[in-house]
């Protein structure tokens, strides 16, 4: 592009070509490029961007490229094979099943977790006695601490604990159920029966995460001035009505962020699955894409194919985030009291 033609054609630019540059450079000089400024740019802009490109962008680009090759992962060479990995992927019934499992989890886990977290957060902050100041239930700080406990335990440990609880013969769950007289649960394999495995696994994920999102919502609700709730109460709004019409619209942005975080986690879920269902579960009902990707890469030695799975997973994750934004906007996000 030459400056002459572009300068002449662009209607918004009134200065003659060359003049623009002069003004620009003059302004540049006026800014006094001191040592402080240069180092500031360097430290806070150039270096982070360089790191970002080197360690985030370029690997992504490379992974996308490898998905178009037949790389085994262990050879220095590879052949370009175009989109045939993707063609194989969408004909691979196991991978499609894993994708379906992931999508189901990305729907159920966020809705249930955030629903439960919101319920508890409301109780702990504004759900208390209707007399006097707006407050939570009695000893709510105790509940808050206790509910956060599961989040303190690493995911892999949660998985291992629950795989013991679900153990058919020696597990706590079947122990309690049989003690209650439900004999049909003796030796019932919660993680080994296609009817129950996926729900059992999702329950563990939800159990592990409710506390964190509850604390997140509590913090958000505490940021709402108490007068708003008092006004609602004076107007005769009950607890449920307050939650729906006051609390949720006021912390809309937090809910959106929470939805995106937990959705990404549900689309991944690798760590929980590695502990609970390392083999993909009965009839592959709990197989997730990340597991399939891992096996394909390291056990089967098909890194090119695995990279294609990674790309699909990334696209689905982005699509999910986009969907959450769209839904939020559809219900009038930002235009209301949200800010």
């Amino acid at each position: 592009m030459t400056t002459l033609t572009s300068g002449g054609l662009t209607s918004g630019v009134s200065a003659p070509p060359g003049g623009l540059r002069r003004i620009g450079s003059a302004r540049w000089r006026r800014r006094n490029l001191t040592f402080d400024k240069i180092t500031f740019f360097l430290v806070f802009l150039v270096i982070p961007v360089a790191f970002y490109i080197a360690f985030v962008v370029s690997p992504f680009v490379q992974a996308a490229y490898f998905s178009l090759t037949d790389w085994t992962g262990f050879s220095p060479g590879m052949n370009f094979i175009g989109l045939s990995n993707y063609a194989k992927l969408f004909a691979d019934s196991t991978f499609l099943q894993a994708m379906g499992n992931n999508i189901l989890m990305a729907i159920v886990v966020p809705v249930v977790t955030l629903g439960v977290a919101m319920f508890f957060a409301t109780l702990v902050t504004v759900g208390g006695s209707t007399r006097g100041n707006v407050k939570g239930l009695r000893s709510s700080s105790f509940y808050r601490v206790v509910s956060f406990f599961p989040y303190v335990i690493p995911a892999i440990v949660i998985g291992l604990i629950w795989s013991q609880i679900y153990d058919p013969s020696a597990g706590l769950l079947n122990g309690i159920l049989t003690r209650l007289g439900l004999e049909q649960f003796a030796s019932f394999a919660w993680l080994g029966d296609p009817r129950t495995a996926r729900w059992a696994v999702m329950f563990v994920i939800i159990w592990g995460l409710v506390g964190f999102y509850m604390v997140l919502f509590i913090a958000a609700i505490k940021g709402i001035p108490a007068e708003v709730f008092e006004a609602a109460r004076i107007d005769g709004a009950g607890r449920f009505r307050t939650a729906i019409s006051i609390t949720i619209p006021l912390i809309r942005e937090n809910v959106q962020t929470a939805f995106i975080y937990i959705g990404i986690l549900a689309l991944d879920a690798f760590v929980y699955m590695a502990a609970l269902e390392p083999g993909g579960g009965p009839d592959n009902t709990t197989l997730v894409m990340a597991q399939q990707l891992f096996t394909t890469a390291f056990t089967k030695g098909q890194f090119g194919y695995a990279c294609a799975m990674g790309v699909v997973l990334a696209v689905i994750t982005l699509a999910y985030a986009g969907l959450v934004f769209a839904v939020n906007r559809f219900f009038g996000g930002k235009s209301e009291v949200g800010e």
């Binding site: 992962g73 991944d268 760590v271 590695a274 891992f294 890194f303």
Partner: peptide, 13 residues
Amino acid sequence: VKPLGRRDFLRGS
């Protein structure tokens, strides 16, 4: 069990 996240895997590969 293989406690390795997808991100760790991508990073490694």
